[in-house]
Simulated assay, not measured.
Amino acid sequence: MTSGVNAKSYDGVVLCAPITIPYRRYSTNSAHWWIGRALHELVKRAKIKPKDIDGFAVSSFTVGPDTAIGLTQHFGLSPRWLEHIPFGGASGVIAIRRAARAVQTGDAEIVACVGADTNHVDSFRKTLSTFSRFAQDAVYPYGSGGANSSFALITKNYMNMYGAKREDFGKLCVAQRDNALSIPYAMMKKKLTLDEYMAARPIADPIHLFDCVMPCAGAEALIVCREDTAKSLGLPFVRILSTIERHNAFTNDPVQMRGGWAMDIDTLWSAAGMKPADIDFVETYDDYPVIVMMQIEDLGFCKKGEGPDFVRSHNFANDGTFPHNTSGGQLSVGQAGAGGGYIGLTEAMRQLIGEPIGTKIADAKTGLVSGFGMINYDRGLSSCAAILARA
């Protein structure tokens, strides 16, 4: 099932100034501090003043009770366009999608998009206990540790339906660890072997230790603006070829086996004037490897149910046949809360402007970034993707 919406192009709008505030396992600083650091680095990188930021989009789980509006006073901003985007791993693509339209219509000229969270010793538990009304009423009171049990259900269902094995998920995790070894702030700093992956302690069958992201503190940020603005500031930039966004897709599936990407891939590829074989690297949202496999299928790189065979027949390292999560993704760098929804975007931007923090993808001209977020018991509610191109 796909849609064929005739999407308006993003001509004239670009992404620039990718910023990462290096991650920490735990932090005594607030989410506000991390967002402030990101904004400071954006201003410094773009050589602008805070008053020049007239659009602001923010995603954070730990900034409460504030939302984007409260942060404007906190940071001395006076934007004429504002978005609070609480969609977890889908936040980054949705932020650039909405900010780009704001720039196109003249509602803003320079939009700062930020995803950031802190991680106190006890903050992850508190986040889980108040994540959603569903979590408060029907999951957390019964002893669920959060997303692990939900993704165990989704993973087991996928394995039963399509014949995926733990070794297949392990191949993805091992490749991402190799990609992360050149990232100085990665939480996981040691090489991972498939034997170590297979022998890791169980968390919630069939989920084991290295299937799970490590919560941490950090921030990711970027600027959305007009191409002529980026040129006037001397900033290298990336073009947006197409985007898609879908929420609460395939509600009749008893357990999630696909996401909203599958409803909109025709729009994604046709608007970009491309096909999957044209993409040089892919950045998927990777809170658990089963979701990576679903995205590979639902984004058109193989048919539904062929994800396991696709994984077995490809090399996912940065110099492999299918460069994937080229910085190591969340599974090896860490999950800085809602910042996890931006990690693929900032990494893709760096690869396309030729300034990666880690290993460079040779002659990268196009990249696909996809997002996934807001898990309830048996499914995630938000999915999105963007195709980006080198200027």
Rank of each mutant, 00 (worst) to 15 (best):
L331D: 12
A336F: 08
S9N: 08
I35G: 10
P79W: 14
G106I: 07
M274C: 13
V224L: 11
I279F: 05
A180F: 06
F237T: 14
G115D: 12
M159W: 13
D122T: 00
Y185I: 07
M294P: 05
L222D: 02
V139L: 15
M1W: 09
N325Q: 15
G340K: 03
R379S: 06
K44L: 08
L128Y: 06
D205F: 05
R350Y: 08
D195T: 03
P141S: 02
N248P: 00
I343R: 07
N148Q: 09
G334I: 08
W33Y: 12
R45W: 00
L233G: 03
D168A: 10
L82Y: 09
R226L: 09
S78D: 12
N148F: 14
M374W: 09
P184S: 12
K51A: 15
P323K: 10
N376W: 05
N325V: 08
A391E: 15
A164C: 02
I353W: 02
G55I: 08
K190H: 15
L153T: 03
H120A: 13
S370K: 05
S370D: 09
T28K: 10
G354L: 04
P308S: 12
T67F: 04
L381Q: 14
L368T: 02
V14Y: 01
E297Q: 13
G358F: 07
C173D: 01
T267H: 00
H74R: 13
T155I: 00
T366C: 08
T62N: 11
Y10D: 08
A17I: 03
A57M: 07
A46I: 10
G115Q: 00
G329N: 04
G339E: 15
P86R: 11
I53V: 02
K191G: 07
F281W: 14
L241M: 15
K44H: 11
G380V: 13
V114F: 06
L241D: 10
P22T: 08
G307I: 00
R45Y: 11
Y10S: 00
S59I: 03
D278W: 11
D168T: 12
I279G: 05
A186T: 04
G76W: 14
G36T: 02
P276Q: 12
C225W: 10
D228V: 06
R177Q: 14
A364F: 03
T28P: 07
G334N: 11
F124Y: 06
D66V: 08
R25T: 13
M263I: 13
T326D: 12
D107W: 02
W81Y: 08
N160T: 14
A364P: 06
T229F: 03
D319R: 13
S149K: 08
D52W: 04
A112Q: 00
Q176Y: 12
H32Y: 05
R125P: 01
L388T: 01
G373I: 04
H84V: 03
N248E: 09
R350I: 07
E355D: 03
Y342A: 11
M294Y: 05
K51S: 15
R226F: 10
R226V: 15
A152C: 15
D298K: 04
